[in-house]
Simulated scan of single mutants.
Amino acid sequence: MNGILNDQHLIYRQIAKMLEDGILSGEYAEDEQVPSTNELARVFRINPATAAKGINRLVDDGLLYKKRGIGMFVMPGAAAALRKRRQEVFAREKITALVEEAKSLGISADELLRLVEAQAKEESL
């Protein structure tokens, strides 16, 4: 697990996001074990209870499951569910804000689409 914690967000949320990112990137495949609470606590020098809170958030979201006495594992279908959820959040938060800002600047829908396509091309999407 790679990553750096910061003071901008709650630590347990950062731990959960790092694990989510690992699931999305394929670092943690379906039915594969994720780092334990103690491993996370040691690597990031945090309280094990804080690491557990981040892991438990993913259990509550249906992305991880527990094998008693062994550890936490990635739920089958977790990457697809996570990708869908993040796409919905992206559309709701980013696209809505983009369209509202374009409207306030007098940018037409066609021009906005051209701008997005040009940027995507530049970024090799």
Rank of each mutant, 00 (worst) to 15 (best):
N56M: 12
F90P: 03
G71F: 05
P35Y: 01
V34A: 00
Q87S: 12
D61K: 15
R42M: 05
I46Y: 12
F44D: 03
P48H: 11
A52E: 04
R86A: 09
I70E: 09
G62F: 05
L40N: 03
A41N: 05
P35Q: 01
A41W: 03
L82P: 06
L82G: 06
K84W: 01
R45T: 13
G77V: 07
N47Q: 12
V59K: 13
A52D: 03
E39M: 07
D60M: 07
I46D: 03
T37A: 12
R68G: 12
L82A: 06
P48L: 09
A80L: 11
G71E: 06
A80V: 14
F73T: 09
V59R: 13
L40C: 06
R57S: 14
A80G: 05
I55E: 00
P76R: 04
N38H: 07
A49C: 02
M75W: 01
D60S: 13
A49K: 15
D60P: 01
T37L: 01
M75F: 04
K53R: 15
L63K: 05
R85Q: 14
A52R: 13
G69Q: 12
R42G: 05
V34N: 00
K84G: 02
R85T: 14
V59C: 08
K67P: 01
F73H: 10
L40E: 02
I55C: 01
K53G: 00
A80F: 05
E88H: 08
G71H: 08
F90M: 10
L40R: 04
R83Y: 10
K84R: 15
L82K: 07
E88A: 14
E88T: 14
L58G: 07
E39H: 05
G77E: 02
R83V: 06
E88P: 00
V34H: 00
V59Q: 09
T50V: 15
I70L: 11
G77Q: 03
T50D: 03
I70V: 15
P35V: 01
R85S: 13
L64S: 06
Q87V: 10
V34Q: 00
R85L: 10
L64A: 06
D61P: 02
Q87Y: 10
K67D: 09
A80Q: 14
F44Y: 15
Q87E: 15
F44G: 04
R83I: 06
P76Y: 03
K84F: 04
I46G: 12
R85I: 11
G62M: 05
Y65I: 06
E39I: 09
L82T: 08
I46N: 12
A51N: 06
